[in-house]
């Protein structure tokens, strides 16, 4: 099974992965990967990035089994550029489209990472429930709580890092608010303190879900509705302001 994944919840990224849903032992093969550090120019860089994944998008695109897009949460404008891209590719190529919470990408990455001591792997990185937190700007984080097995327990939420207590916290949100989190008896693991969700990790997470369920349809993936979590800032105007005073 070959899938294209796109995630623009933080950085602009896209990847193509190949895996066999009937073979849970074999890990997904990364066919092509594009990722940029930039969090502000998704509308420019994403299309050339996606194009670079293909030899010939016109023949290879329609042959994909699915497109999986990260549905956030993430800053709105960037997030939308990935979803607009994914929806339009899905329509044009006639390839089914699924969504996946972007924080799941980091959760599965944490689940896959062993903890090392003196160069020796001593345990899985997350042995208890843990939290993934990313930058929501405006002094807030997007966050969700996962079990040690990377199953979603609670969230996604948006709010101050101060809302999170007594767990290990991973992701760029943890790095940004390390002091607040430490004061709340949370621990922050340095190698994940700048980590952002990417399409590659989203693809690995999707491949694991699809393989565990045995098929794409049974994997319980979401649709492509963006997880904004915040309303627009618009306020219904109050009574008229007076020009004379």
């Amino acid at each position: 099974m070959r899938i294209l994944t796109i995630d623009t919840s933080a950085v602009a990224s896209a990847a193509i992965l190949d895996f066999d849903p009937s073979n849970p032992v074999k890990t997904a093969e990364v066919v092509a990967n594009f990722v940029t550090e930039d969090t502000r120019s998704h509308a420019e860089v994403l299309a050339p990035g996606v194009k670079s994944l293909f030899g010939d998008p016109i023949t290879e695109g329609p042959a994909l089994d699915a497109i999986v897009v990260g549905t956030g949460p993430g800053p709105f404008t960037g997030l939308r550029s990935g979803i607009a891209m994914a929806r339009t590719l899905s329509f044009t190529w006639g390839v089914p489209l699924y969504g996946m919470m972007s924080l799941d990408a980091l959760a599965h990455q944490v689940f896959d990472s062993p903890e090392y001591r003196n160069g020796v792997a001593v345990a899985p990185l997350a042995v208890r429930d843990f939290v993934i937190a990313t930058d929501a700007r405006r002094k807030e984080v997007y966050w969700a709580k996962y079990s040690a097995g990377a199953q979603l327990l609670d969230g996604p939420h948006v709010g101050p890092a101060d809302d999170i207590f007594g767990v290990q916290v991973f992701g760029a949100g943890a790095g940004l608010y390390e002091e607040v989190l430490t004061a709340n008896r949370c621990s922050v693991y340095e190698p994940f303190a700048q980590a952002q969700p990417t399409a590659l990790e989203l693809g690995r997470a999707a491949a694991r879900k699809i393989t565990a369920a045995g098929s794409l349809e049974a994997a319980g993936l979401l649709d492509s509705t963006p997880l904004y979590l915040r309303e627009s800032d618009a306020k219904v105007p109050g009574p008229r302001k007076r020009a004379l005073s």
Binding site: L46, A47, V50, A84, M85, R87, T88, T92, W93
Partner: peptide, 14 residues
């Protein structure tokens, strides 16, 4: 940004 992203997808896919 929405129209531009969609238009780029359309151009790249076709």
């Amino acid at each position: 940004m929405v129209g531009v992203s969609a238009a780029k997808a359309l151009a790249l896919a076709t």
